[in-house]
Design a protein around this nucleic acid. Structure first.
Lengths: 221, 221
DNA sequence: AGTACCATATTGGTATCCCAACTTGGTATC
DNA sequence: GATACCAAGTTGGGATACCAATATGGTACT
């Protein structure tokens, strides 16, 4: 693997894992020494992460993108459009057996599963469902949206009730998709996304003070 | 403007204007000498254009992305999802006066208008309509999709009949949006996108031999 | 003539150097 | 004590040098 890919991957992981806080300043030279690479691959990695929305420019320098509540709301609308479109396509497929693979993914989480795993599977559910459509653009749109939502959702997975509710909704969506009921699946997915957004934004808005105290920049809606 | 932005802009213009043919190989050193910049900004520009899908990696090197008919079909599905979502949002706005600005844009094209302008306005119609929704993600999705479609559409604008048909459909969409009839506007827009895709892919598939003769790589659906 | 092989040129990946713009911290002045 | 100002350090943008991998073209041998 090239240094650029290595730096990109590690830096993304640190940002998504909140090892570098939202809103924190980054310098190319710090990344350079942190990962033992020179500035050329570091700059390349930053340019890519910028297009993912994980880092942004702050004047001349670089900043880890803050958690942006207004952005979270817009992403939810965007997600709804692309995920529903992908799901409708999938419901029209003759072979929808991949639904079972996704269901198995959900079932792999039980009470002993670490939080990180719940978090990852919760995102992968949506990503894999989109991949099933066979449309690369819809798939990438969902994957990128989930990446942007990742940190905000991570701050939320402590909530047991929300998780079990989400899993129930996920199963219901799969059940509708399995029998090819596109309208019902779409309705359930829309509801799930809208509901998730409301709970997420409310929760973060309430926690905002606490998050800022931990050094996490959170810009209001 | 930084060299990176300058190189990115000029290179994008050359690719979209077909001055560099789809499928052509690019070397960083050629770009370097062509635009009088050093490799640092050249590499940065290539990395950004890669995320736009205008250039891609070919093993170790760089290639201008070929025209890909399968991709065009997938983009149409993607566009339909995001553009319809944006249009429905726009129809729900209380102030839809911006529709008139878009209409004026359409009207600025007459028989004396050069082809390039028709081409640009035809794309900007969709982009501005998406911007009107106020959702940045839907807007960027449409803008990026139109960028990817740009070259294929350029090979098509010679067709007078298709243009006047497209303009009529554009006007009808605006008329429905103006009175806030979201369902009708969405129906018209869906039809417009599906129809455009069919005509575009058919036309390019027929021209494929001729395009390859001009050195343009066209990969079939 | 065909083919296997090697020297050479070219390429992208990386490291490093320089520079102008900007920050920062201290200092002299009022 | 406040403020205007300046010097030193830091930063991102750019240029260039170097390297390993690959492509290329010619050559010797069959």
């Amino acid at each position: 693997m090239s240094q650029m890919q290595s730096v990109e991957k590690q830096l993304r992981q640190m940002i998504l894992g909140l090892e570098i806080g939202p809103g924190e300043k980054l310098t190319e030279r710090w990344i350079e020494s942190r990962f033992g690479a020179s500035r050329t691959p570091v700059r390349a990695a930053l340019l890519r992460l910028e297009t993912e929305g994980l880092v942004g420019r702050d004047g001349r320098g670089w900043t880890v993108s803050p958690i942006n509540l207004a952005e979270l709301e817009q992403i939810a609308v965007y997600r709804e459009a692309v995920e529903v479109a992908a799901l409708r396509l999938s419901c029209g497929l003759v072979d929808r057996s991949a639904v079972d693979v996704i269901e198995a993914m959900l079932e792999s989480c039980d009470k002993d599963t670490p939080r990180e795993e719940w978090h990852r599977v919760g995102m992968d559910f949506h990503i894999e469902l989109a991949r099933l459509s066979g449309n690369d653009f819809l798939f990438r749109a969902v994957r990128d949206a989930m990446t942007r939502l990742s940190r905000a959702r991570w701050l939320e997975v402590r909530n047991e009730a929300a998780l079990s509710r989400a899993w129930a909704e996920h199963r219901a969506i799969l059940a509708a998709a399995r029998v090819g009921d596109a309208d019902e699946a779409a309705r359930l997915l829309s509801g799930h996304i809208v509901g998730s957004r409301e709970r997420l934004v409310t929760s973060l808005a309430n926690d905002r003070r606490g998050l800022r105290a931990r050094g996490f920049a959170v810009v209001p809606a």
